[in-house]
Nucleic acid binder design. Structure first.
Length: 682
DNA sequence: CTGTTGAAATTTTTT
DNA sequence: ATTTCAACAG
């Protein structure tokens, strides 16, 4: 005990030293005790820094790192924060002991560990969005739903309804009424469908994303497992609390009923995931849920210059929901934000590429510049332009690498080996063989099931003539993969690639490129301890197609392209916002729903607040028809987005792309504002 | 029953 | 670009 106290005392001075870089509110939050704590952190107010220091401070106070749970929105965010915890503590390997990750990722870990206590077989397979949709479609077919009726929701729609209902903890009827009025007539068949869907998952030991949270709740409600899980953690910190949903809130309530040791951080002005059933109510009701909660507000912005803040404050200030804060900054000098009018999106791409190069020559590296857009296709034209200028970039958001058909094909082989009852992967894998279709695949899978999942039972199975020759190889591959669960992962993937390669060449034009992807997968495999964790991680947190390439192939100083959603929590010195036009932001098809409209506004706000020094908002007046493959949506009338109102426009410097002149830095600092002044309430 | 072909429809955002 | 659907041939 004595030795330990000495160690703590020794560290105190060091901790003080670190904390001295925080402002009063940040320090108050970082050094808060174990009572429930809500941190309302506006954009750029040092939210991450505060959270990092809170974790570091707790550890310096003697809390064991492995008794802290840090729940973040992405695994990347968790990794980054824990790295900075080490930095703050000037130690290595402390952050790694903290339980950090997404709700879903943590769910997997806990369920593998303790699932047995509630009858969960820990070798479950995690279905990603697409797998879950495929399963849904398969069951639709079995139940003969939607065959005749054109209006029955597609698999995507079914999945969306089910998932929303689970995450919002709303009964199906209410979910339909409030979120999916167009599907209201199908309450009964959907009910049946979902029941069958859930039953099938249970039979096959398949977990979709939602199950990870549900079973985690089950774990917490269990008389023995519950206390065991609760007892593991002294402190639980939740980042991006404004983007959690009811199910997640229930989870927190279960894991910390009184809110003891609970810290939630968020910004109601940045809630942008209501399509995933996230609700601002969580953050607004936190004090009610956890009486005695302390609330700390961070309002000093360290990121952006005052001219940029002026714009962003106005944008969010026009929200009909009204938020009780106004950000201010010491960084009074700065360049006016630029509103750039372009003739069309081609000119926009040209303009942005040129400015990027000029800024780079002026000393701002590409990686400190980001281009943001509403939907991932919105950057296609720009990507071409960048290629012409030989500007390397990484793109966040949009299609994931594992969602490509060929990667899914290959993974289906591995996944079937891991879980022979995984009928989703089984179908996909078997249909790769020529002559085998859904029907035959189903028969073969039944045979496999009858043999208790032992692949050698397939040796004497009857197969169509088309795949007579490859069948023995296929069985051999599966048998060896299945018997090799713990073996060298890279070798397993290699074997699967060797088998798949001829099929790949047969079915795709650009086989060599796709083969390269598979080899990338082989590389990635090396970083996982075992097959099960690789498959779970690929499902929950898939590597991004360009952003998570293996080291060698990743550009040294890449420009960043990102959807507005994926830009959350990040910042750059220069930010370009593309397509600030009606129809693009807000997206045309949702502009009629007032709630969603407000969410689009917040999304726009999130994009603008990423900028530290330079902000360019581009507005193409026409949409050229060369949008991806098919003509763009909308008629290209190209009106300026409603979120740049007359008042907002006044805080911009407006220019045309063709006659663009580099703006001067405003030398005269505007009068300094005082902190802590709130605006109107809700 | 399966695979091919061609045409039509569909894509927000993400764990 | 990719997926989904209908119609037809093996």
């Amino acid at each position: 005990m004595c030795a330990r106290r000495a160690k703590v005392a020794d560290k105190d001075s060091e901790t003080d030293d670190i904390l001295s870089r925080l402002n009063d509110q940040q320090r108050q939050a970082a050094c808060h005790g174990a009572d429930p704590l809500l941190i309302i952190a506006g954009a750029g107010t040092g939210k991450t820094t505060t959270l990092v220091h809170r974790v570091a401070w707790l550890i310096s106070q003697g809390v064991a790192p492995y008794r802290i749970l840090l729940l973040t929105f992405t695994r990347r965010a968790a990794g980054e924060m824990l790295r900075r915890v080490d930095e703050a503590l000037r130690q290595d390997d402390v952050g790694r002991q903290v339980w950090g990750g997404t709700f879903h990722g943590t769910g997997v870990r806990l369920l593998r560990l303790a699932g047995k206590m509630i009858g969960v077989n820990p070798r479950f397979t995690v279905l990603d969005q697409n797998d879950a949709e495929d399963l849904m479609a398969a069951i639709c077919r079995e139940l003969d739903l939607g065959k005749k009726d054109k209006h029955f929701p597609k698999k995507r729609g079914c999945m969306a309804v089910h998932s929303y209902s689970v995450n919002a903890e709303l009964p199906l009827k209410k979910t339909l009424a409030s979120q999916f009025p167009q599907h209201q007539d199908y309450a009964e068949p959907l009910e049946k469908l979902f029941e069958a869907y859930n039953q099938r998952k249970a039979e096959r030991n398949l977990f979709d994303f939602d199950d990870l949270l549900i079973k985690w709740c089950d774990l917490l409600e269990h008389p023995e497992a519950g206390p065991e899980i609760r007892g593991r953690f002294d402190h639980i910190l939740v980042d991006e609390y404004q983007d959690t949903n009811r199910l997640q809130a229930r989870l927190l309530k279960l894991i910390s009923p009184e809110g003891r040791g609970l810290t939630a951080v968020g910004d109601d002005a940045q809630s942008i995931y209501s399509f995933r059933a996230a609700t601002v109510r969580n953050i607004l009701d936190f004090p009610k849920q956890f009486p005695g909660a302390q609330i700390v507000k961070l309002e000093q912005n360290y990121r952006s210059t005052q001219p940029i803040l002026k714009v962003t404050n106005r944008v969010i200030g026009e929200s009909s929901q009204g938020f009780a804060k106004e950000l201010w900054s010491d960084r009074s000098a700065g360049v006016s934000p630029q509103l750039i009018t372009c003739y069309d999106d081609a000119e926009q791409a040209q303009f942005v590429a040129e400015r990027i190069l000029q800024h780079q020559k002026g000393g701002i590296p590409f990686s400190q510049q980001a281009v943001l857009f509403r939907a991932s296709q919105h950057s296609i034209l720009l990507e071409g332009e960048l290629a012409r200028h030989r500007i390397e970039f990484v793109k966040y958001g949009g299609l994931k690498f594992v969602e490509a058909a060929h990667v899914k094909d290959l993974l289906s082989l591995i996944r079937l080996a891991e879980n022979p009852r995984d009928s989703v992967s089984g179908h996909r894998a078997l249909c790769l063989l020529s002559g085998v279709g859904p029907k035959k695949a189903g028969d073969l899978l039944r045979e496999l099931g009858a043999a208790d999942g032992r692949f050698d039972a397939w040796q004497k199975a009857k197969v169509p003539a088309g795949s007579k020759e490859v069948w023995p190889d296929f069985v051999k591959l599966m048998t060896s993969l299945a018997g090799d669960g713990e073996g060298d992962l890279r070798r397993q993937i290699r074997r699967a690639i060797d088998f798949y390669e001829p099929i790949l060449e047969e079915s795709f034009e650009n086989a060599p490129q796709r083969l390269a992807d598979l080899e990338q997968l082989e590389q990635i495999a090396a970083s996982f301890p075992d097959r099960a964790s690789m498959l779970a991680d690929l499902a929950i947190d898939p590597p991004n197609s360009t952003a998570d390439m293996p080291q060698e192939r990743r550009p040294r100083d890449p420009l960043v392209l990102s959807t507005m959603h994926s830009a959350k929590g990040l910042e750059w010195r220069v930010v370009y916002v593309l397509h600030a036009a009606e129809g693009k932001i807000p997206l045309e098809r949702i502009a009629w729903d007032p709630d969603q409209l407000e969410e689009e506004r917040r999304l726009f706000y999130v994009a603008l607040t990423r900028a530290a020094d330079w902000l360019y908002v581009c507005h193409p007046q026409n949409t050229s028809s060369s949008y991806g493959g098919w003509g763009g949506y909308g008629d290209g009338s190209g009106e300026l987005t409603r979120f740049v109102s007359k008042a907002v426009k006044k805080s911009f410097q407006c220019q045309r792309a063709r006659s663009f002149a580099i703006p001067e830095e405003t030398a005269a600092p505007p009068a300094k504002k005082k902190a802590g002044r709130g605006k109107k309430g809700v």
